[in-house]
């Protein structure tokens, strides 16, 4: 793709348009991907990072076409391998701001292994998982996040396998930044992306995304305007977990479980509720919350700091140079024992 813009002379301010490429966006009309693209472009413009330092990396799937539409560096790689390719990019140049766009099939099925290791290593990648609970690009087979019994082309009598919970998985992989948002929540989406950009280390964001063609309404039980206040709970650090249209419900521990309680009923007050702690080193609370399905927790499950992988890799190089001096090729070639023929 030829570059359209002249070199970036430190322009006063980048705009969303600076992040739009000259390529026609080819998602189905009404696809949730459009909203995510737009939110990302908006956020990128405001980060104060030069355009040439962004790299969009993706795997294969509908969502993975994303890099073509963002006017930065981009790499549309192979199915499932984006975390590995992105790790290589980031290790080669830690200065780059690397975003990784993936889907439920790409990240959790064929690329499950790479996702797990990128997260545990804490490579500084902003991973956006567009979860539409279906394979779109291959025209509608069930995915690792599809509900049991899903009837699709490849499962005419219903799917058999138990789905994976992306948030639980990311937490189990020791991810340092884990959040959930949805395509239709422009504002929350943008806030989450902004927080992600500021995080140094692996970011994992599950974005509930509607595939209008093959799995329309997969999240309408959660996100529909009429019911959503009762069907989701917003995770806010330091705040009790309250939800409901009338702000009258909350989440409370019940042994090792989390239960929904009615505020004011049976003497339940705000004091009985779980207070969210996104910065806890121990991820048990975040994990417990990730298991709650009704209401669906949205927002930031976890945000802790740990040195990122590529930072440590380069620090090791620097330390070695400090300790042994810069490598001397002649010395290396000679090795320890030589003999000379005159």
């Amino acid at each position: 793709m030829s570059s359209t813009a002249a070199p970036e002379t430190p322009k006063a301010k980048l705009t969303k348009a600076d992040f739009q490429s000259d390529q026609d966006v080819r998602w189905c009309p009404g696809c949730g991907d459009y909203a995510i693209l737009s939110a990302a472009q908006q956020v990128f413009a405001g980060l104060g990072i030069p355009r040439q330092n962004f790299v969009m990396v993706s795997g294969i799937g509908c969502s993975s076409r994303f890099p073509y539409y963002v006017n930065t560096y981009g790499f549309h790689t192979i199915h499932g391998r984006a975390p590995a390719v992105a790790t290589g990019i980031k290790m080669a140049n830690p200065e780059l701001q690397v975003w990784l766009i993936t889907g439920d099939g790409d990240a959790l099925s064929i690329g499950g292994n790479h996702l797990m290791h990128a997260l545990r290593r804490n490579v500084d990648l902003k991973i956006l998982l567009f979860n539409n609970r279906i394979y779109g690009l291959t025209k509608g087979q069930y995915s690792p996040t599809s509900e049991v019994g899903k009837v699709t082309k490849s499962t005419p009598f219903g799917s058999l396998d138990h789905p994976v919970n992306p948030i639980s998985l990311a937490l189990a992989c020791e991810a340092t930044f884990v959040a959930r948002t949805a395509d239709i929540y422009q504002q929350h989406l943008q806030e989450t992306l902004k927080a992600a950009a500021a995080h140094k280390g692996s970011v994992f964001i599950e974005i509930l995304q509607n595939c209008i063609i093959f799995n329309d309404g997969a999240f309408k039980d959660v996100t529909d305007r009429a019911i959503r206040d009762d069907k989701q709970v917003l995770l806010e650090h330091g705040r009790p977990l309250i939800f409901g249209k009338g702000h009258d419900k909350g989440l409370r521990f019940n042994g090792l479980d989390v239960e929904v309680v009615q505020l004011g009923k049976d003497g339940v007050t705000e004091k009985d509720l779980i207070v969210h702690d996104a910065y806890a080193e121990n991820q048990t609370l975040a994990y417990l919350l990730s298991r709650v399905e009704n209401p669906v927790p949205m927002g930031l499950f976890r945000n802790v700091t740990r040195p990122s992988f590529e930072q440590r890799a380069h620090a090791q190089v620097d330390e070695t140079i400090k300790k042994y001096g810069k490598g001397d090729l002649d010395k290396l070639l000679k090795g320890k024992e030589t003999w000379t023929v005159n």
Partner: peptide
Amino acid sequence: HKNFGVVTFQAEDEIAAAAATVGAAFA
């Protein structure tokens, strides 16, 4: 030989080793 600026990456599998190499080449 890290003091030669060498970055080594023991990947999670052969596929990742190769894919990361492609990424590093890009960068």
